[in-house]
Simulated scan of single mutants.
Amino acid sequence: MSGAETEVALLELPEPPSPGPGQILVSVEAAGVGPWDQLLNGAGWDVGLRPPAALGVEGAGTVLAVGAGVTGFAVGDRVLAHEAPLPGGSGFWAERILVNAEHAAPCPPGLDAVHAAALPVNGLTAVQALEELDLGRGQRLLITNGGGATGALAIQLAAAKGIEVTATASAAAAERLLGLGAMEVVDYHDPDWPATVRGEFDGALIIATGTAEAALPLVRDGGRLCSLTSDAPAEERGITTWDLYVEPNAAQLVQLAEQAAAGTLKLAPEPLPLSEGPAAFARVAGGRAGGKKIVLTRE
């Protein structure tokens, strides 16, 4: 599946080459869809796609072949991965993909392919953002768009550390997010939502585009603001601000997968057949996923 600049369509693609040194060939069982995929459909995020090619930078499947020097995986192993750049020039929305073995994590027995494929990008983004924010028990964190896939995982991971989370989301998502560990959920539809929360947050995690400027005054002097939407405001009052871009990390993915398999990290993916990939892409790119994580599955 691929798009030139605007079109995403079903394609017949050639088989990937045999895995080279340090690589594994994976039979894809499920692949995640995210708003970042529209950046692949053009020049926004260069992950080494060589059209015609499949989109997708995360997924889960079974190892079909291993390249020279690979010791951690064998044929038949179940794995999940976030991969960028794509060594084979094509992504996870396909039957087979080449990935670097060092970026793959073993899939625990209790984690099915759909849930595994829903985890890599959103989970790694949440983990890496929280590590950079470096907050601890009793400190306060503001998350905008807590109802999305990344936000929901960040809430759970932060709450597990004893961090007090306030999240913006729709009113319909409030009960779910409180159940995931948020202390407070604020309706982002209210244009005056910043005035309804107590400020002096130790940190802010910006996941909703256009909310960084509104969140900055709510962060205490010397606090930290991490933007996932490439719009971190200029630093002021000693507040450290930065934009974060996710990176593959197998060790972090191992921990996330184990938590998901144990049920301590909750996911709620919406599986769709691969044939509905173009429609799924359109939903996500148009912001019509309703906060759900869409995962494409082999039919």
Rank of each mutant, 00 (worst) to 15 (best):
E184S: 08
A289V: 10
V165I: 09
V284L: 03
A261L: 11
L40Y: 01
S227F: 02
G148V: 08
Q23M: 12
I207V: 15
A208G: 06
G263L: 05
G32Q: 11
P35N: 09
E15H: 12
N145M: 11
P194K: 00
A204G: 10
E132Q: 14
E276L: 11
Q255A: 15
E200R: 08
D37E: 15
T62G: 07
K293A: 10
G22R: 01
R283L: 15
M183S: 14
V75C: 03
I294Y: 14
L296W: 02
V254T: 14
A173D: 13
A195M: 10
V219D: 11
S90Y: 03
V70T: 07
P19A: 11
H82Y: 15
S18Y: 03
I97V: 15
L39E: 10
D192P: 02
P19C: 08
G61N: 04
D187Y: 02
V186G: 12
V8T: 13
V165L: 06
W193S: 09
T166G: 13
N100V: 00
G146T: 04
G48C: 07
V28N: 08
A9H: 08
V295H: 06
V70R: 05
L119R: 00
V57E: 12
A204N: 05
L177K: 01
L133R: 02
G277R: 06
P271K: 01
V8Q: 03
V114D: 07
A31I: 08
G179E: 09
P269S: 04
G42H: 00
V284G: 08
D231H: 02
D190R: 05
H103W: 11
Q128G: 09
A172H: 10
F201H: 10
G199Q: 03
L86M: 11
G88C: 10
G222F: 05
E164S: 12
E12F: 02
K266Q: 14
L225D: 07
S230Q: 12
I143R: 05
R176W: 12
P21K: 06
V219A: 13
I24M: 05
P273N: 02
A268H: 07
L119Y: 05
L177I: 08
W193V: 13
R96S: 04
G22K: 00
P21L: 00
P35L: 13
P271N: 01
A280T: 11
P21S: 14
L274P: 04
P106M: 09
L218W: 03
Q156I: 04
S227D: 13
A280N: 05
S27Y: 04
G44V: 05
E132V: 14
A285V: 01
L265M: 09
T297F: 06
V165P: 03
G238L: 09
A74D: 14
G223H: 03
